[in-house]
Design a protein around this nucleic acid. Structure first.
Length: 309
RNA sequence: CGCGGGGUGGAGCAGACAGGUAGCUCGCAAGGCUCAUAACCUUGAGGUCAGUGGUUCAAAUCCACUCCCCGCAA
């Protein structure tokens, strides 16, 4: 079936790779324009664009989805459907109208929960035990269209934002394929979302990664899991900003003030929280590569009783 | 030319400003102590100090250039 793929991020790239691996190749890929990113003002293509270039797919990177030129180009494509996965912009009605059959999108949450830009991160931050994928009909309003297919996915205790994104992207591709086959045969069911249960998972910002040691250990650990990759959870030790990458909870009675280092051994740095200890196992100091927390201790004379800020 | 940190035995760091024997905390190896241990004690191996050129009697250290890694910002 001929379809146009809209996507831009790393998550979207994995989905696209899976579709490609299983023989579902879009006739055209639409990604976002290259943007200056990373240090040094370099203009780099986004993940989906890079994949498209590697595989020599037709690729468009329109600045505006409303432009006459772009609309005409899509019209000419006369695709049977559109597949959207983390494109990052809403598709305007005049564009959606160009999809032969219904346009569909993949969203890595159990809609109507966690609509928006960062559903996977927020599910982890909230300590959810379960999330999922939803394939829905693209409507003008964000993540609000009728549901075609939905699949539940367990969140493991060891999952983090990176592993869960990857897991959901792979499973999501399978779900999209199922939906594409249904659309092809005109054998799909649309179920309206229950607006009463809708919730929103907004884009994260750097501030969201700041650790409050006043919270309990599991809340802190969930933040660390949910923000891994970007923006990452961080705290300050003396003048150094530390990203906290891996932790473990140690259930015990805490007598020291939150943020106090109460124990150090080869497993890492044990820090007091409002409830239980959290053992920091892996960190990344600013300007450095990720390292074992104990390695950081060795080089920086970390001592008991010191506090993170 | 967006801002900034960094590259020193296997790991993390000090030494650099005020050039002059390669240092610290670990790890590793061998031995000892111990009921025992990730504890303690002895001893040991392991470095062209990212690279190239320059200054100098002498460069990890000063100067110039190059390569690589990372944080912020976007």
């Amino acid at each position: 079936m001929k379809f146009v793929y809209f996507g831009s991020s790393g998550f979207s790239r994995v989905v696209l790779e899976e579709l490609f691996a299983q023989g579902y190749t879009p006739s055209l890929i639409v990604s976002q324009p290259d943007k200056p990113r990373s240090r040094g003002l370099k203009v780099l293509p986004l993940e989906v664009s890079m994949f498209a270039q590697e595989k020599h797919f037709l690729l468009l990177k329109p600045c505006s989805l409303h432009s006459e030129e772009f609309i005409q180009r899509i019209k000419k494509e006369s695709a049977e459907t559109f597949v959207v996965a983390d494109y990052g912009k809403l598709l305007p009605p005049e564009l959606l109208a160009l999809s032969g059959k219904i346009p569909i999108a993949l969203h890595p949450s159990l809609l109507p929960c966690y609509r928006g830009a960062a559903p996977v991160n927020w599910a982890l931050i909230h300590g959810e035990k379960e999330t999922g994928n939803t394939v829905f009909r693209v409507r003008e309003k964000l993540d609000s269209g009728e549901i075609l297919l939905q699949e539940r996915v367990c969140i493991a205790e060891t999952d983090n934002a990176i592993s869960l994104h990857r897991k959901l992207a792979r499973k999501g591709a399978d779900l999209l394929i199922k939906a594409l086959d249904q659309i092809k045969r005109n054998e799909y069911m649309l179920t309206a979302q229950n607006e009463a249960f809708a919730s929103f998972a907004p884009k994260l910002s750097k501030k969201d990664g700041k650790i409050s040691w006043d919270a309990d250990a599991s809340t802190i650990r969930n933040l660390i899991r949910g923000t891994l990759g970007w923006p990452s959870a961080y705290t300050d030790y003396k003048k150094i900003t530390l990203k906290i990458l891996e932790t473990q909870i140690v259930e015990t009675t805490v007598t020291q003030a939150p943020a106090t280092i109460v124990r150090i051994d080869k497993n890492g740095i044990y820090v007091a929280t409002a409830k239980n200890l959290i053992c920091i196992q892996k960190v990344q100091p600013q300007g450095k590569k990720p390292m074992d927390a104990y390695a950081f201790v060795l080089g920086h004379n970390v001592t008991l009783g010191e506090q993170f800020t």
